[in-house]
Design a protein around this nucleic acid. Sequence first.
DNA 1: ATCCAGCCGTACCGTACGGTACGGTTCGGT
DNA 2: ACCGAACCGTACCGTACGGTACGGCTGGAT
Lengths: 209, 209
Amino acid sequence: MTPPTLTIGEDNLTERQRAVLDAALGLLVDGGDGLTMTGVARRASCSKETLYKWFGDRDGLLTATVQWQAAKVRMVPVDRETLTAKSLAIALEKFGRDLLSVLAGDISVALNRLAVSHAGQEKRNLGAIVLENGRYAMGRRLKPVLQAGRDAGLLSFEDCETAFRTFFGLVVRDVQIRLLLGDRMELDEQTIAADARRAREQFFALYGA
Amino acid sequence: MTPPTLTIGEDNLTERQRAVLDAALGLLVDGGDGLTMTGVARRASCSKETLYKWFGDRDGLLTATVQWQAAKVRMVPVDRETLTAKSLAIALEKFGRDLLSVLAGDISVALNRLAVSHAGQEKRNLGAIVLENGRYAMGRRLKPVLQAGRDAGLLSFEDCETAFRTFFGLVVRDVQIRLLLGDRMELDEQTIAADARRAREQFFALYGA
DNA sequence: ATCCAGCCGTACCGTACGGTACGGTTCGGT
DNA sequence: ACCGAACCGTACCGTACGGTACGGCTGGAT
């Protein structure tokens, strides 16, 4: 009877509900279509009535699914202890690798496709959620590192936001849009590591003090 | 009776057909939904039967619409005559401005959203078309300039593709994905010009000879 | 033992939309 | 003047899917 909770996290979800959301994620990954209420109910072996009771409507289910996935990929924050040129470089490069790995993953691609689709149809909440837990979460995670790097005299920039966006651009480049559009890119671990390394080198060339 | 032509361009389309495709584009821009066969027929004041006769099915109409828009935005190629450091910089900066302007436009956003949506559902042709006329067309357009810059001793890079992708990243950064996800960014001419200028400066810092 | 809440499975409804059929109209060719 | 092709408008059909209703099962509380 009660509408679904406003924010979905790891808590306020029962084990069964998480299983349902995982089913929705699975359904989403292999072919964005097929993600129907009936499909989710069948895949999760639950009834549609339960889905509506738990999540309100289809949008609620989708929202919960996105938030559930976001809750799962909480990245460990980069620690800014013992900051040297080398440790900063390592942190940046690892951040780049993590970012590319996540972005190139099936779930991220499928989720972003879903959110992009819905962003074009009034109900923009999915897009906002993905933005908040994707792009903006990345910024909040890396900016302290950049600040620390500047405080330690290792980096030089005026606007932290601009510096982050540049790093983002150097790392991601055309990868995400190409993947979203269905381009078959080979992005094995080797390539990702090389890309992150190049991005790190270029970023230091631009912002190194 | 005949299936729709394989490739749609400025020719092999009657004036009426272009008007119909423009109606579809307009419908697409203001709210991705509403782009139904009935909606297009109503907006274009034509019959659904005509739509099906001309374009085969809904996918054919969408494909034709995308190709029609692509045919309209043929960018003028950058001329590589009298290449100096200054003219190269101007060319790069103008390219960046054009790229950002197009990407931030309503039509581009709507079109990319449509293509991204369809890329997640087998029928990947729309994504491929947008990729071909978007990202890849940009590469084909800028690469000769980069090559000329290298030949003139103004730029230094090994892989032209990598250099282009870096420039792309420096220009676009997180703009496209944020727009696709519904982020309300203020991208006036001032901002675009500043972004292109910064990208050009950074690119020269990285690849200038 | 009884009861009740929660849930599964299935059937069902309404609507939206892709696709088809058809009558009526316009218009160029002969 | 006549004919046929192309096209408009509208009605229609089938299906897919969001959402609801309901009967039956299970498991824990009393």
